[in-house]
Design a protein around this nucleic acid. Structure first.
Length: 474
RNA sequence: GGCGCUGUAGCCAAGUGGUAAGGCAGAGCUCUGCAAAAGCUCCACCACCGGUUCGAGUCCGGUCAGCGCCUCCA
């Protein structure tokens, strides 16, 4: 809340409670969601790596909030439902599942608790009642609004002063409100509004911000550790969350973390601009791990530019690391016993470098650089000759633990859409083809040998001749 | 108008006042039947102008450019 980087000290030693603002499930998740989810997934994984037990709560917003603040705004879920000719809750469930399918593909760990707004109407009503009792909220025409004038701290997170805010920007300043900046805690439902619940004030639906205050406090308790979300939610959403919770007498989140936005051609990717790429679409063009690698290659607080060149660069760079790891694991099969002290020291230094980077506000680009440093050193050693088994295991552990467990990489084949496993067949065929090619080569019939190699290349199989014999990969 | 962020090589991207990490692309070399892979080498007057300092990409002021939030958005 000091609006700067500060040392982290959890409430309960050894434990961390994290809350992340999740998606409103009314359309496919796009790359912006991926950046947020991966950013906080890495933070969670890093905390776990450093020994914390993490309770990770990420909500799903499935209440249909209005598309804008004017009177006739349509509910987003309902609008989608009309388009797809579904019940609003069918829409919510459809995109709920597709969201998890996308996140699984990106190797984002599932939350410890995944509360849905519609399942916590009672908790939200209770919090609103507390606010009314304390004089920070008032009912007006069946709706309930938060009284920002009654809460001087409103604005502390985003560094805004009420009086600086431009008035009248909104099309219709609702006369129901005492102040145009008051925000809805409960809205009376118009007759055509489908998602509606009983409340002391009207049949209606909760305001957009109240669910996060209610659910985070319910599952993480008073004064929980970390609250995360996109930078674009800082104001008004998170500001409102804090005001509601604290005005009602609760201790709210102690640390706030915001991921920055993703740009394409320098412009923010967003639903309203229509310049977004869905995760499903991008996964048709790029491996999930490449997408994830590109995301962790920039810092969560920085803007990430995503263009085709960046993807190509990420694909090649990631491949280099994967190849090094694959070679380590191949060599483990017939490595001599013992260790290589010089390389051991280098591995330990890179591990240290990685962990230092992560400890400094989760500096993933720096951590990735440490892995590339490791890659160069390991490759050099592997080129030089046999490396001891123990050392290879240490190198493997460095990749699997840091790149794998912490950054969530090297999880090819995980998640949705597992490819049909044709490995045994391909292996057998490759053995035959390579044997034939080797015969051509021994008889110096290079044209024939190269033709085989070129044909394989066309179907995505690379053949490499090395000192130790032929090797292939796809 | 208010609040805030950013400008680092062709691209992506770190950078705690003390000679500018890393990756991709590119060039050369080693290895190789040729390739590929890997390794080595090369590749930045840090938007501009002032100031503070022994020393500034890093601090201060200004200029220019771009972006975000203030309305739904991750």
């Amino acid at each position: 809340m000091q609006r700067q980087k500060v040392p982290f000290v959890p409430t309960t030693p050894g434990h961390v409670g994290m809350y992340l603002c999740g998606p409103t499930v009314y359309s496919d998740a796009h790359l912006g969601h991926a950046k947020k989810e991966v950013a906080f997934d890495v933070i969670r994984r890093a905390l776990m790596h450093f020994g914390y037990r993490v309770r990770y709560v990420a909500n799903i917003t499935d209440v249909g909030h209005l598309q804008n603040d004017s009177d006739d705004g349509e509910d987003k879920l309902q609008a989608r439902a009309r388009l797809e000719q579904l019940e609003p809750m069918e829409v919510a469930d459809k995109y709920f599942w597709s969201f998890f399918k996308d996140m699984d593909a990106l190797n984002v760990l599932r939350p410890s608790i995944n509360p849905r707004a519609t399942g916590h109407i009672q908790e939200q009503i209770k919090l609103i009642e507390e606010l009314i009792e304390r004089g920070h909220a008032y009912e007006s025409a069946g709706s309930v609004y938060f009284d920002v004038r009654s809460w001087p701290e409103y604005g502390k997170l985003s560094g805004r002063k009420l009086d600086d805010q431009e008035e009248g920007t909104r099309e219709a300043v609702r006369e129901e409100k005492r102040d145009p900046r008051d925000f809805a805690l409960w809205k009376k439902a118009e007759p055509e509004h489908l998602m509606r619940w009983d409340s002391p004030w009207s049949v209606g639906f909760p305001g957009w911000h109240i669910e996060c205050s209610a659910m985070s406090l319910k599952y993480l308790g008073e004064g929980f550790d970390i609250h995360g979300g996109g930078l674009d939610l800082q104001f008004p959403h998170h500001e409102a969350e804090i005001a509601q919770a604290e005005a009602a007498g609760h201790h709210f989140a102690r640390y706030w973390m915001h991921n920055n936005m993703l740009t394409i051609g320098g412009e923010k990717m967003s639903k309203s601009k229509g310049n977004f790429t869905t995760i499903e679409d991008i996964l048709h063009k790029h491996e999930p791990m490449v997408v994830r690698f590109l995301l962790v290659s920039s810092h969560y607080r920085s803007v990430t530019e995503m263009n085709e060149e960046a993807f190509a660069s990420a694909a090649n760079g990631y491949r280099r690391m994967v190849d090094a790891l694959a070679e380590i694991e191949r060599r483990l099969n017939d490595a001599p016993a013992g260790a290589d002290a010089a390389l051991d020291a280098k591995i330990a230094a890179r591990v240290q470098e990685f962990e230092d980077a992560m400890r400094d506000d989760f500096n993933t680009p720096k951590a990735v650089a440490a892995l590339f440093g490791l890659t160069a050193e390991v490759n050099t050693a592997l080129n030089a000759g046999p490396v001891g088994h123990d050392t290879l295991e240490r190198a493997q552990a460095a990749y699997r633990t840091l790149g794998g467990d912490v950054l969530g990489l090297f999880a090819e084949g995980s998640g949705a859409a597992p490819a049909q496993d044709d490995t045994p067949v391909v292996d057998a065929l490759m053995e035959l083809v390579l044997k034939a090619r080797q015969n051509y080569r021994l008889q110096k019939q290079y044209a024939e040998a190269d033709e085989l190699r070129d044909t394989l290349s066309e179907v995505g199989i690379t053949v490499e001749d090395t000192k130790d014999g032929v090797r292939w990969k796809r």
